[in-house]
C-alpha cells in the first residue's frame, strides 16, 4: 500500500494522473476480490473530469452497462469504478455474425482531489454515461464576502 497526496489540481495534474494510474495497477488487485481480466479487447472506459466552483464532475463512458452492474467505491482518496458489460440475450435461436463490442469486466481508479468531500458523492447513469459529482469541501468553496462601501 502506498500513500500519495495530490497537492492541488493544476497544470501538472495530467502528468500526476498518469503516474498515479500506473502505480495503481498493483493496488487494484488487492482491492478487488474478483479477478479482472484485462485482455486487449477489454472495455476501457473513457473519462473526462470537469471542475467548477462547487464540485468536480466525472463523466465515464460505459454504454450498454446496466445500472446494477456498476460498482463505485471510495478508498484512500481514490474513486474505484468497476463493473461488467454483459452480452445481451435474445429469445429463440440466433447467431452472432459480427462481433466488435467488447464484453466483460472493466475497472478504473480515479484520483479524488484533496478538497473533495467524499461524503457528498452522487452518481447518475444516462445514455451510457455515468456522471459522478463530487462536492468540494465547504471551506474551499469561494465565498462571497459582503463589502460595505462607506
Amino acid at each position: 500500500m502506498f500513500e500519495r497526496r495530490f497537492p492541488q489540481f493544476g497544470p501538472e495534474f495530467l502528468k500526476e494522473f498518469h503516474e498515479f494510474r500506473n502505480q495503481l495497477n498493483e493496488l487494484l488487485n488487492s482491492v478487488f476480490s474478483e479477478d479482472v481480466q484485462l485482455a486487449s479487447r477489454a472495455m476501457h472506459p473513457v473519462v473526462d473530469i470537469i471542475e467548477n466552483d462547487q464540485n468536480y464532475t466525472y463523466f465515464v463512458e460505459i454504454p450498454g452497462v446496466k445500472k446494477e452492474d456498476i460498482k463505485l467505491m471510495v478508498k484512500d482518496g481514490t474513486l474505484y469504478l468497476s463493473g461488467e458489460r454483459k452480452e445481451p440475450k435474445f429469445s429463440g435461436n440466433y447467431q452472432k455474425i459480427r462481433e466488435e463490442l467488447p464484453y466483460g469486466k472493466f475497472q478504473r481508479a480515479l484520483p479524488l482531489p484533496k478538497d473533495a468531500d467524499i461524503d457528498r458523492i452522487n452518481a447518475r447513469y444516462e445514455d451510457g454515461i455515468l456522471f459522478i459529482t463530487v462536492d468540494k469541501k465547504e471551506e474551499t468553496k469561494p465565498k462571497l464576502i459582503d463589502v460595505k462601501v462607506q
Binding site: 435474445f90 452472432k96 455474425i97
Partner: peptide, 14 residues
C-alpha cells in the same frame, strides 16, 4: 463498434 445477430426472422444490430 457494431455487433450483428441473425435470428430466424430478422437481423439485430447493436
Amino acid at each position: 463498434a457494431t455487433d450483428i445477430y441473425e435470428m430466424a426472422d430478422r437481423f439485430v444490430l447493436l
